[in-house]
Design a protein around this nucleic acid. Structure first.
Lengths: 204, 204
DNA sequence: GCGGCACTTGACCATTTGGTCAAGAATTTT
DNA sequence: AAAATTCTTGACCAAATGGTCAAGTGCCGC
């Protein structure tokens, strides 16, 4: 076998692997792992099928590496949620950032959504490991704000779920949203609504 | 060709088609149309592959007929949303019903979610046709309540989206929700939270 | 500018998959 | 109970698909 060693990463390797990731994000986010084919990925990346296999172990390897490389970016906004004098604004900033991500990274949102719907077999350990720890930590932070009377009381975990749900809905269900809104850009009116929703929920 | 005529539907035809639908709901909701195989469906239905093809034109036909047969049930709660002396309670009843559906029909929720993520190629006409009309009608109803000062003002379309998002999240992202909640049953605590969220949003 | 190494791919292969078909097994009709 | 019809499936097929491999092509340091 003639695989590139992990040590010496050449320019071409970086470029081609990036092109494959980009193409794979397109294809996997639309069809899931099983529904996607190497030919599709190769075609969109502008490479031959054997060439794709030259850079990755196989289809599944592309998928798992892609998922992992996107995870950090995906949960970054939650990591940045931190203590603040104005918890309502701190949380609303998180909400806004998540909504921005739905607008700017819909493929990533759909990729994770598909993985979740299929019971997250490839990131199960992350979800019930570091992600759960992260959410627990932030839930404690939020709980503290509630006990200090700085925001209205509710279940912090479900609060986080609802933020995820509402914001990601605009990426994952984009077709439906646009069809119902009859061509009006959802992201013109969504920020106001979402801010109102969570401001009313959070203001003590 | 030897297909059953649409006229005389026999007992066996009803039973077997039902078994195939049931199996297909399992398989399609987990893998989407492309990711599912006839063998999987046949196996779960306890039939041979040719026997499955005997009752349906093919894989795609099972999928589209299944989608269509579920659409009515899926939007029924929204249809039932109607004028009321207490619009807040009327809307909260809708929210509760949607949450119940996520608990009791997660496969249907995931099936539609997967179809949406993949740009809804099979129900595009419905979404931008009768569904849009239905949502528009209900949005006008809600708008009326707002103008009458019976509920707080906001964008009715986005209000409906947020109800869909929050409630369906518990079906579509079930693994994640359960992982984060560390085994605690989401549907024990979700109803309270969701009711609080939308009560605060709606109460004038 | 040349030797070695990284990169590329046409041809090929095994498996999976959607679907067919003819012949036989059940069931219903008469 | 015989005839007619519906139902069932083992064997099969063509296309799609994940992946291999040997033979090249081209890039890069010397």
């Amino acid at each position: 076998m003639n695989k590139p060693r992990p040590t010496g990463t050449t320019r071409i390797q970086r470029e081609k692997r990036e092109a494959i990731f980009e193409a794979a994000l397109d294809v996997f986010s639309e069809n899931g792992l099983r529904g996607a084919t190497l030919d599709q990925i190769a075609a969109r990346a502008g490479l031959s099928k054997p060439n794709v296999i030259y850079y990755f172990q196989g289809k599944e390897a592309i998928y798992t590496e892609l998922l992992e490389s996107l995870l950090d970016i995906w949960i970054a906004p939650l990591i940045e949620l931190s203590d603040s004098d104005d918890p309502v604004e701190e949380l609303l900033t998180y909400v806004r950032r998540k909504l921005d991500m739905s607008r700017d990274m819909p493929r990533q949102s759909r990729l994770f959504a598909t993985e979740m719907i299929q019971n997250a077999p490839h990131i199960n350990d992350v979800i019930s490991g570091s992600l759960r720890d992260l959410v627990d930590e932030k839930a404690r932070l939020i709980k503290g704000w509630m006990k200090a009377g700085k925001i209205a009381k509710s279940d912090p975990h479900h609060l986080i779920f609802s933020i995820w749900a509402v914001t990601q809905h605009y990426a994952d269900f984009d077709v439906q949203v646009r069809a119902v809104l009859d061509g009006n850009d959802p992201f013109k009116t969504a920020p106001d609504f979402v801010e109102t929703l969570f401001r009313r929920m959070l203001t003590p």
